[in-house]
Design a protein around this nucleic acid. Structure first.
Lengths: 144, 144
DNA sequence: GTAGGTAGTGTTATGTAATAACATACTAGG
DNA sequence: CCTAGTATGTTATTACATAACACTACCTAC
């Protein structure tokens, strides 16, 4: 979990971007969370202790972290989750458990080319692909 | 386009559901639109002419139509689009053109099993799958 | 060193998306 | 009838996201 912060620092330094206080704060909170978080939970959490934190501050940090691939936005429910496989942004699907709400990352390297091909057959050229799922994770299946 | 309305009527009758005025109105507007629409555009459009239409009315209609597979919600940007392949809700991806904003539906029957398998390998059991893309459609590629 | 550009943050205000909660109407079965 | 089920109407509010502008820090070219 502190790994992620160090990775972020390294990544920023390499690409000449600033790993500023609000960006660090947002990433720390997300990294510490078991489950994906909603933006406004993040905002109020970020405001605890220190000075009040307003929406644009957090949204800007989130945009930055998403671009670097350190954080993913889950479109289905507008939540954000820290990425384990940080840095190298290869295509991955996010599957969210309906019970415990934890997100599981699954690589879909095999699938991406197929979808790209299917799109090209209709003349459509893909630049971004979102693959998300819902269901039940292993732990919750065993617990049931 | 009126096909879609007739299909909806038939589908509702078969399953004993009511194809009521607001549901029809929302589907008509979506069917007439070239591109996916945002909810509040729908709301104001639905309110033109007749009596004012409030958000819950439209959202309820959208929920209904989505469940029947007559309409799809595009999670990336919270828009709604009428479904050409209505009724039989086989898995399909929605690819949205960044230029003309039109949505193209692409079946991914081949891909779904692969993703399900990849998920199962991590003990995750899928109940819902979202596949969405962004890029450039054929028409816009040719026009460029 | 200082003028000007770039990148980032702080702050106010507002726009946009979605739903809770409750009242009302229609309709089919007993 | 009347009542259970289904759907709509209405008010209000909650949640998600960004526009616009002021300010600071830093860097670099003259």
């Amino acid at each position: 979990m502190h790994d992620l912060i160090r990775q972020a620092e390294a990544l920023c330094q390499r690409s000449g971007m600033a790993f500023t206080a609000p960006r660090r704060r947002v990433l720390e909170i997300l990294a510490a969370s078991e489950t994906p978080m909603k933006a406004y939970d993040l905002i109020s959490k970020a405001g605890e202790g220190g000075q009040a934190t307003k929406p644009p501050t957090v949204y800007r940090a989130l945009d930055f972290l998403c671009q670097l691939g350190l954080v993913h936005r889950i479109e289905q429910d507008a939540t954000f989750v820290a990425c384990n496989h940080a840095g190298h942004s290869h295509p991955m699907a996010l599957f969210v458990c309906n019970t415990c709400l934890k997100a599981t990352e699954v690589a879909y390297d095999e699938v991406a080319p197929i979808l790209e091909k299917a799109a090209e057959m209709q003349g459509f050229h893909l630049t971004r692909l979102v693959v998300e799922g819902r269901g039940q994770c292993q732990d919750c299946a065993l617990a049931a």
